[in-house]
């Protein structure tokens, strides 16, 4: 199995890397027992996959052993985002009993970062993710990895995340800023909690900070000073 090339996708812009570090830090503040973290959102395209990938990279950069699991079995985009040339086997193969987990974990060019892709797209993702196989999988992964980052399908459309939630240590809501009504996001939170999951918090994506100048005006300029001197 070839090593997956991930390094080109690590952002270099200081504002972005700082915000990702903030995310990582806040996740770690959720407690030492929070090691399996799911990412979901209301709708597709809000940034779940991108942010879960970046979160996994972030943990690996701290020296942790991290596994990124692509659990969006219906419409996975991770392989596409990483520009994989060939189709790879993944989670759906394991859940269908067609492969062993060890065969599906891929190394990357970032030390400590491993990826389990979604595998072939399946229509019955909900059954697979609610099955015994998945329930058994998570504790097994926890033995091997420091952190497991799970990218899931948008819970506004597909219920899969709710089925996985009770097996995860927590779920992060990814919100595309200024896009969805708060009522929809409330439903996301309620659904996760109703299913026995725990909401760790929200990540606001695509935040337009330009108009914050009016509020924070003089405070904002000073920020660059710290970043440039790193």
């Amino acid at each position: 199995m070839d090593t997956i090339t991930v390094t080109p996708f690590v952002p270099k812009e200081p504002r972005i890397s700082e915000s990702l570090k903030t995310l990582r830090t806040n996740l770690m503040f959720s407690g030492p027992s929070v090691r399996v973290i799911g990412f979901t959102s209301f709708a597709p395209g809000e940034g779940k996959t991108t942010i879960s990938l970046q979160t996994a990279i972030s943990f690996a950069q701290l020296g942790k052993r991290v596994l990124l699991v692509d659990a969006d079995l219906r419409k996975s985009v991770l392989a596409g985002q990483l520009r994989l040339k060939t189709k790879v086997e993944g989670l759906s193969h394991y859940l269908s009993g067609l492969a062993n987990v060890s065969e599906l974990i891929q190394e990357t060019d970032i030390p400590g970062l491993y990826i389990m892709f979604a595998g072939v797209r399946v229509p019955n993702s909900t059954e697979l993710l609610g099955s015994e196989n998945f329930a058994r999988l998570i504790p097994a992964l926890k033995d091997v990895f420091d952190y497991v980052v799970v990218d899931t399908a948008p819970i506004g459309q597909i219920i899969d995340c709710a089925l996985m939630a009770p097996h995860l240590d927590g779920v992060v809501m990814v919100i595309d800023a200024s896009h969805n009504s708060y009522k929809l996001e409330r439903r996301v939170k309620n659904q996760i909690e109703k299913s026995g999951g725990k909401v760790l918090g929200a990540v606001l994506n695509q935040v337009d900070t330009s108009h914050d100048r009016g509020y924070y005006g003089k405070y904002y300029g000073g920020y660059n000073y710290y970043v440039d001197n790193e």
């Binding site: 504002r15 972005i16 395209g45 939170k189 990540v203 695509q206």
Partner: peptide, 21 residues
Amino acid sequence: YLGVSTLAAIPVSAELKVVRP
């Protein structure tokens, strides 16, 4: 509206604009 903590606010960026569905 949600009563949860904000873990991070990721700014708009060209670097993170990947191909979306």
